[in-house]
Every structure is written in structure tokens, then in C-alpha cells.
Amino acid sequence: MTEKIIISGAGGQGVMLLGRVIAEVALNENKFTSWLPSYGAEVRGGSAFCMVVVSDEEIPSPYIEKADTLIVFNKPSLEKFISWLKPEGLLLVNSSLVPKLNPNKNIQILSFPLTEIAVKLGNIKVANMVALGIYLKRKKLFDIKTVFKTIKKITLSDKKNLIDINIKAIKEGLNLI
């Protein structure tokens, strides 16, 4: 098994964190993993992306040429990375910020208003964790218990109050499909 994921969105949408969490979960399940952030000048507002590879064997390159999964949080990200998705690949789209997609038989599309769902949950920043829930349910790569354990483990001590809302968002995502 080798799963290559590209995650992209506006700076501030939690793109990097989502990638990092997936890699941390993979580590805790003793899989090979790599996480490669884009390191441009974008901090807030600009576009940000990262590449995550999870595998049962040694990972040749952290850089992804063709992705199994593409998760996009806004329209520019979709336009930039759609051609990087493999045929039959999974596209997870934040429909709150991406206009309706034309049906495409070559890829699997999951479209949810991630931003709106996050706002309803009480924190716009957890759109990434809603996406994680959906992704986990669809791909079934990891034990959900490891995911929750990982979230608790990697949250910095001064941010512990955010654990609950993040776990709530993941659960929300898990229940969407």
C-alpha cells in the first residue's frame, strides 16, 4: 500500500496541519510516511499546499508527481492541482469555496461544504478536521482510535482546549458519508 495525498488551500485554512496530522497518525501506526510542506512566502491568504505519503514500504520521494488523493479547500487550489490527480483518484472538495464541479467519470469526487460545516460546529478553523473525518471514512487506512490518540498527543500544551472541537469535527466528517 502506498497512498499519496496532496492537500491545498488558502494560507490559514489548516492545510499544513491536516497533512501533518495524517503523517503523525501514520507514524503512530508504524507506517512509513513523509510530509513535505510548500515553503513559499505565503503565510496568510496566499495558496499553501503540502504532500503526504503513507506507505508500507520505504518512500522513495516525498515529492508527489501523481496523487491518489487530492484535498482542496478553495478554487485556485483545485485549478492548480487537478491535473496532478491519478485517473480513478479521489478528489475531496470544499464546496463552500469551490463552485459546482462538472461530473467527471475518471475520478471519484466527494464534495462537502467544509467551511460551512466548521462554522456550524463553532470554529471555522476546523474545516480541515471535517475533511480528515471524511477522508478517514472513505479510505479506511487508519484505526480511528489512533487518530484521536494522535490528536491528543501532538496538541501543544497551551492549545489543549482545542482538542475537543477538533475531535468533534473529525466525528462530524466521519458521519457525513
Binding site: L27, T33, W35, L36, P37
Partner: peptide, 10 residues
Amino acid sequence: DGFLGQMVEP
């Protein structure tokens, strides 16, 4: 190279 510096691995 830049990848080696930036990439995160176990």
C-alpha cells in the same frame, strides 16, 4: 537540497 531540509519524516 531544499527537500531534505523541508521534508518531515520519522
